[in-house]
Design a protein around this nucleic acid. Sequence first.
DNA 1: TTGAAAGCGCTAACAC
DNA 2: GTGTTAGCGCTTTCAA
Lengths: 376, 376
Amino acid sequence: MTVSPSQASASSSSLEVTDQTAVSGRAVTISDVALRAGVSESTVSRVMTGNHRVADATRLRVESAVRELNYVANAHARALAGQRSKLVAVLVDDITSAFDNRIAFGVEQQAMAEDRLCTISSTYADPYRELALIEMLREQNADAVVLVGGVVDDAVYRERMARLAHLLDAAGSRLVLCGRPSPGEGLPVTVVEYDNEGGGFALVNHLYGLGHERILFLGGTPGDTTAEARLAGHRRASTVLGLPDGPDLVMLGGVSRRFGYERIEALLAEGRLDFTAVHGFDDTVAAGALAALRDAGISVPRDISVVGYDDRQIASETSTLLTSVHIPHVELGRTAVRLALHRADPIAPAEQHVNLSTHLVVRESAQSIPHRPTTG
Amino acid sequence: MTVSPSQASASSSSLEVTDQTAVSGRAVTISDVALRAGVSESTVSRVMTGNHRVADATRLRVESAVRELNYVANAHARALAGQRSKLVAVLVDDITSAFDNRIAFGVEQQAMAEDRLCTISSTYADPYRELALIEMLREQNADAVVLVGGVVDDAVYRERMARLAHLLDAAGSRLVLCGRPSPGEGLPVTVVEYDNEGGGFALVNHLYGLGHERILFLGGTPGDTTAEARLAGHRRASTVLGLPDGPDLVMLGGVSRRFGYERIEALLAEGRLDFTAVHGFDDTVAAGALAALRDAGISVPRDISVVGYDDRQIASETSTLLTSVHIPHVELGRTAVRLALHRADPIAPAEQHVNLSTHLVVRESAQSIPHRPTTG
DNA sequence: TTGAAAGCGCTAACAC
DNA sequence: GTGTTAGCGCTTTCAA
């Protein structure tokens, strides 16, 4: 069994305080180790990388020198001399969002499993900031750069991604798009999506099975691929099942709890309660809707059913537990890294594409309707 | 005005698709740029770093060559040749926790402002994982390594941190402890704390002002510095104000919503409702307590008051808005980076120490008690 | 199995 | 102002 250098040093250096560490200032280098072990630098290098045969006795001498000096290889020198950089990067809109940080968590887990360092950065959905970050990552020769989250899929997006893909490819990095669409065929890019369309379909189908026919789709950013896909699933189900569909049953425009609350509040104020179920864009919007209904004295799920999307923590903490669609966030992140790092031929710029499935999680917030709510 | 290289390249390379990028494979190097601009590598280097005078005409030639070739400096070569690494790292227990990711967010913001890349990693409070990560960061010559979150402050902790401080110092990195105590005097370490003791005091004082005397402290990990400090503030206030205090009014043992819920549920089942207010270790525990009381038909704040700590998102989303203590999470993260990067003398291993203040945020969940709740 | 030597891409004296 | 030269710490041929 070969063991990577940092694994070796991590496990060999115990947590006890037993150092003969170098004094503050100049760091310990490979030549210090070579000197102490009485071998050449090449031999130390061979022991550290573990990719060459070294006599057992020699190896042991080197290993103790490493331990005694607290030596770690300089990652920059190593990267410069041709090795890869051991760095995986993930760019999210906002690390404090639950959606983003679950995916980042998966990326980080897999990066760690593959003995890579992981950098997580927020772009605030600002293309200039995104580009600035990618420049830095290009400088670092990151192994993989994972971009997370829905986008508006237009020509500008496709061209920007195509350009990034080539730029990163030239620097030896792999671009991974996670939860966003492929920018086109034949690019050196890895795409990991999850099934928004299918989830949207499943929710409507579930509500239909409970007897609902007029279902309000609430929330989402117009044009955003995530919102569009969930809505597309909603619409396909409506068509297949013969449910009414129309502009009055679709309200896009926001993704916040507040948006959900205020829209429902407004509808109630206008007396436009001509639906029996709310299909929230995500759990956050659904939670807002839930609160608005509760505050108006309308019982969920007795009078109105509500469903969400994401299966976030919040779905199991609302007063009425939320029926939702589970997204395999962590698995998305892990898959992104796994695919990017293990391409059949790391040189050939082949495209990779997977679409992870989602599934319905039935809780309390959607039930059959024994009677229509009293609206007036 | 001098502009750093990555700022320069970020702003100069537009978002349009106008590349004559190198083909997949060998990356563009400084000598390619030098060749194209008809100057020496040194001159290109001077333009890139901006720390030497270069004739305007020459600079312009170099800049266009850079743009045309999509050149970015290799960070490893640069770091190796003596520059710092432009990398700031933050290690948290769990990036999906709201507490951790708010602080990480601050670290990231400040790192970006200082033109540094930021890596965020989770340790799951595992010392071995922490050490393994620090080894990797040592390899990377990170400018700063920020450790976040409460710990058990014992001899083992102090020795471990002292060792890390020296190890990182020797590699030219700065260790920053954020929200955890100093491991001792004279170490090359930066400590950024926030006032847990004061916050604990303020909450009890606030409840006292509302007429509460028997206040239950609920939640927290025994031995953890964060829990100990909040409890210490609670106790100091009790002493100063002459309130009852005793083992039956302190229940440590968990930090989850579930813990808060189940303990209150159990107390109710046993009929031990001999307090008028619950001082939650944090908002999560308080939210659990709130839910348990609500489910038992006890009104908050009419019958019982509840307060939390952290001023997390959840505090303003519970059915009864939570009175809490605001922690300046983002500011903590920013301060950590700012201090670490701007030491008076980056060579001298002086200790730095600040303690950011917290403040009370009064919402609805604590009110005066007109009457005792009916327990039987 | 080991050592010597070249070079990765860049910066920083040092000359001119 | 600009070019030349010598490394930074490591890996990796190529010999021995």
